[in-house]
Design a protein around this nucleic acid. Structure first.
Length: 414
RNA sequence: GGAGGAUUAGCCAAGUGGUUUACGGCGACAGUCUCGAAAACUGUUCUCCCGAAAGGGAGGCGCAGGUUCGAAUCCUGCAUCCUCCGCCA
């Protein structure tokens, strides 16, 4: 959410941002409602001032006068409340303004490649995709997964389990050694966290809702961790706060029924290690931190010796809350293409404002924090490039050096 | 799931219907003093609205409603924490 005063002072910028992000905002309505709200607020405040004055007198006449005043105040207050709710609703739909360094574009075709790392492997044999590899080596069972848990459900089996735990553990340890505070975050969360994150009101269909308990299943640890300090005022001295959080993640994938229907790419449930930073309200510093998060994730892929490329997301392909966003795409041989494995975002104070996450500056003022996050590793998706890039002619799979201690062997074969 | 207790500002904490304009303390920030610091003293330290400013006004006591001329205080619902009982990996 952006501040209404900021929007009014930077109306053209905000309008351009919404257009570039392909979002529709009812600007005229927003401004009109704001006017109405201000007018109502003034009237309500004036009437309350009068009420307070009358109440002080404590005479019989004052009581009669107070009773009359109460009626008109009640109506006005009700009106103010509903107008305020309407204002909030529209305000919630205003997307954040991208940084000037973000490429402008309609959709994913407008994304800009920043760099590539690693060499795409050349195979002198017919390669298998991860589904076939996993089947032959008894590493994943999608058929029985579907039988038990429905579409997009799966079992990991044998070394795949060790690989998944290993890679999660590896990423976790790396980030901890860089000074990030480890967290295990709840996957079951209250509704306000999803609004706070900027997932709602837009992405309701993407999120599982447990009606009986009115809880939601978070699609990422970003949701609980962004609200970790909600409603609190941190000290500038303690910023930036850096976290590395593990959580099981749940996504309905409602908008992508036809997409990636096979294999481990798009799943309803997966495990993720997420990096998060809560920082001060200084854009240049936050942009530097965004690069730090990016660098951390690149390092993990480099350790795994997986070829990847870094994409700078264009305005049309980034979400509402983002100021700037990079995707890291890892080489997936069966696709003959790079596929998204990590996503690095800077939200400015967009989320912080929504969850009331603030800090006190050195000179005693309160400010909204900046929030950032990036995937460290998400699995099983990361197993796709891992299995496919490391496959060998005889159908076995070499284990990346850094994961050998976790898997307990150098080659997976049957 | 049941019974009881609690929730006040960054932290601790007083206050049980009307000089409460939320007592007081700690911390933080600014100033005085100082070569500099500590101490001491003075001031500031939640949010919103109007205003160029000076200033004025409103709201804030876990959250949301309600009663009353007037609510931190009374009522209803909800959340969270603590103690005990039950169930449980």
């Amino acid at each position: 959410m952006l501040d209404i005063n900021f929007i009014k002072e930077n109306l053209e910028k905000c309008k351009a941002a919404a257009i570039n992000k392909n979002r529709v905002v009812e600007w005229d309505k927003l401004l009109a409602i704001d006017e109405t709200w201000r007018r109502l607020t003034k009237s309500v405040d004036d009437l309350r001032a009068k009420r307070n004055e009358i109440a002080k007198k404590q005479t019989e006449e004052a009581k009669v006068e107070g009773r009359q005043l109460k009626e008109s105040l009640k109506g006005l207050e009700e009106e103010q409340r509903s107008v305020e709710a309407e204002l909030q609703t529209i305000l919630m739909t205003v997307p954040n303004v991208p940084d000037t360094s973000v490429p402008i574009g309609k959709d994913s075709s407008g994304n800009v490649e920043v760099r590539r790392w690693g060499k795409e492997p050349v195979f002198d044999f017919g390669i298998k995709d991860h589904i076939e590899l996993a089947k032959k080596l008894d590493l994943m069972d999608f058929e029985r997964g579907a039988k038990v848990g429905g579409f997009r459900a799966y079992f990991l089996k044998n070394e795949a389990v060790l690989l998944e735990f290993g890679i999660l553990q590896y990423a976790l340890r790396k980030l901890v050694s860089k000074g990030y505070t480890p967290l295990m975050a709840p996957s079951l969360v209250k509704e306000f966290t999803l609004f706070g994150n900027g997932q709602f009101p837009w992405g309701r269909d993407e999120v599982y809702h447990l009606e009986k308990d009115d809880l939601y299943l978070a699609g990422t640890a970003e949701v609980p961790v962004t609200s970790y300090y909600s409603d609190e005022i941190l000290s500038e001295m303690d910023l930036p706060k850096k976290f590395v959080a593990f959580s099981p993640c749940f996504r309905r994938e409602a908008g992508s029924y036809g997409k990636d229907t096979k294999g481990a790419y798009r799943l309803h449930q997966f495990n993720k290690i997420e990096q998060l930073i809560i920082s001060t309200n200084e854009m240049s510093n936050s942009l530097t931190l965004l690069e730090e998060l990016l660098h951390n994730s690149e390092e993990i892929l480099q350790d795994l010796k997986l070829p990847y490329r870094v994409m700078s997301m264009c305005t049309g392909d980034m979400g509402e809350p983002q100021v700037k966003k990079y995707d890291i795409e890892t080489w997936m041989p069966s696709r003959g293409a790079y596929g998204e494995t990590m996503s690095d975002s800077l939200m400015g104070d967009f989320q912080a404002r929504r969850v009331k996450l603030r800090y006190r500056t050195k000179d005693g003022k309160t400010q909204y924090c900046h929030t950032l996050n990036n995937t460290a590793v998400a699995s099983p998706r990361i197993l796709i490039p891992l299995l496919e890039n490391y496959q060998q002619k005889d159908g076995s799979i070499r284990v990346p050096d850094v994961l050998v201690p976790f898997v307990g062997k150098e080659v997976i074969s049957r």
